[in-house]
């Protein structure tokens, strides 16, 4: 464990808590992409299948359980409890355009052709593009609530911090996982446009609006 990975995990946990708070406090999931949240739940489900069989540490097990529970909890809030506030008209990104190529790629490019490894690879590739429906939805509505922009900033920061973690582990532990690094870089690059808007607007106290 290193400071980059720890702060990355905390940023990830913070993002998930911010989203749950937003939905619970405003009793609305307006502006939140249910498709992205479905894909995040799929990411955690396919990545943490070894939760029972492969004990790493109490921290690892606890965080995995929190991530799985919170991602399904978010789906429950969005599609059941506050379903009436789900903005399906603006959440129109075609998930199959992401899931199918990612599934194909995980069969072609992986470290080991075994079920667990292919599912892990699928979850890594899927996570790198899972935010696209959310970013697409913001581009369609042209704005995002401030709390939702904080959620996205924390979520984008988590994988950026993981990149620093991989640099650290490469130099100090000789650890290197090309699949995770490449996918993590793609994932972080997808946030650049949002990061620019967030830093130039939200940090000045303005609402996050996209230039018309």
């Amino acid at each position: 464990m290193n400071v980059f990975r720890l702060t990355g995990d905390i940023a990830h946990l913070l993002a998930i808590i911010l989203l749950l708070m937003k939905i619970w406090k405003t009793r609305s999931c307006a502006g939140v992409s249910g498709k992205s949240q479905m894909m995040f739940a799929l990411v955690f489900t396919t990545r943490y299948l070894d939760l029972i069989t492969n004990f790493i540490s109490l921290y690892n097990t606890t965080m995995k359980m929190i991530f799985i529970a919170s991602s399904y909890g978010t789906l429950y809030l969005m599609f059941l409890k506050f379903r009436a506030t789900y903005d399906s008209n603006h959440d129109t990104f075609r998930m199959e355009f992401l899931v199918v190529p990612v599934a194909g790629l995980s069969f072609l490019v992986n470290h080991d052709f075994s079920p667990l490894e292919i599912l892990w690879t699928f979850s890594i590739y899927l996570e790198s593009v899972a935010i696209l429906p959310q970013l697409f939805m913001i581009s369609k509505t042209g704005e995002a609530e401030t709390i939702t922009s904080h959620y996205l900033f924390a979520l984008g920061s988590y994988r950026a911090l993981y990149i620093l973690n991989w640099v650290y582990r490469f130099y100090f532990e000789g650890f290197f996982d090309l699949i995770a690094v490449v996918a993590g870089c793609v994932q972080t690059v997808l946030y650049c446009d949002f990061f620019y808007l967030y830093i130039t607007k939200v940090w000045k106290g303005k609402k996050l609006t996209l230039p018309a």
Binding site: R5, D9, H12, D50, N54, I56, S57, N60, M63, K64, F67, H111, W120, Y162, N165, E173, G174, F175, F176, D177, L178, A180
Partner: peptide, 10 residues
Amino acid sequence: KKKKGKKDEL
């Protein structure tokens, strides 16, 4: 080359 470590990352 990826050091065969357990998948210890989240």
